[in-house]
Nucleic acid binder design. Structure first.
Lengths: 163, 163
DNA sequence: GGTACTATATATAAATG
DNA sequence: TCATTTATATATAGTAC
């Protein structure tokens, strides 16, 4: 950055922070536009700030929705499909997933999924955002709890009918 | 843009396009990190490319979910570009707030149940503590989420088998 | 609070290994 | 391809209005 190099830390001065935000916000969007145009890829960016009543959503709220709905849905864009054949694509993905799972460990995964479940239930997270692996795990987790709940309900019903 | 100024258009050469993408991808993420740190704002970026089986999601899939769901909650069904002016924004926000207030009773219950579910999942609460009414509600909540998960899994399976 | 203007830091296209 | 190295284009912090 010009004139002086700025420390990469929260700018405490309100005015300076706002000015910096405005400048960098436009810079960031410009960069996003460029990479999209130059490389023919899809991208979206969402910026929240206290300076605008709405988030700055690029390229547009509608386009962003489309991009977001494909979030973690790993089909590549149509025009580039030829570049990555399905087989190597699948293999890559498998390797990546395996590596990830190994790294995370069972306990981490469980905690993460519990978090996800909580977010889903409270409506803070859309399921379309999860990978297939996440969904399988989540399905198991939910099913398990449903069975426990059903057993509990049966207990109540038996008790109410008999007593 | 060093060495020579490049025309802002799709790079037809595969190799050059890929190289440019890799460089600019990291540059974009770096810029996003910086504005977040410097200005204390929330942001997320999603980049799809044929060079990676998964999209590059910044800051992380889970954090991005949080940012995205906030975006969804804020500008729900009619997200269009016209909505940018302050008046319609204010009106929409008022409607949203009114709607929210009327639904508060329901939401309270839902949140309470969600909390309960979370506690159950984390083992901090046994189901035997719940009333039969609570259990019915919880059962519905969990079943509903299970159905959504199942549909989502079916989608993946159909896609994988067809392509 | 904006805008316009530098001077400097950074990003990056092309070259090179 | 990739990493490293330039040389140059761009972004932007501070400044002045």
């Amino acid at each position: 950055m010009p004139r002086s190099k700025v420390k990469l830390a929260y700018i405490s001065d309100d005015s300076a922070r706002r000015t910096t935000f405005r400048k960098r916000e436009s810079g960031l969007i410009k960069k996003a536009e460029e990479i999209t145009t130059l490389c023919g890829v899809e991208a979206c960016a969402i910026l929240y700030s206290p300076y605008s009543p709405e988030p700055n959503v690029w390229p547009s709220p509608l386009d962003a929705q489309r991009v977001i709905s494909r979030f973690r849905n790993m089909a590549p864009p149509e025009q580039n499909r030829k570049m990555v054949d399905q087989q190597s694509f699948t293999r890559q993905r498998l390797e990546k997933t395996t590596e990830k799972v190994t790294k995370l460990g069972t306990e981490n995964r469980h905690n993460e999924m519990t978090q996800v479940m909580y977010q889903c239930l409270s409506g803070r997270l859309g399921l379309e955002c999860l990978s297939i692996g996440d969904l399988y795990y989540l399905s198991g987790l939910v099913s398990q709890n449903l069975r426990v709940i059903d057993r509990r309900l049966e207990f109540f019903q038996r008790r109410d009918h008999s007593g």
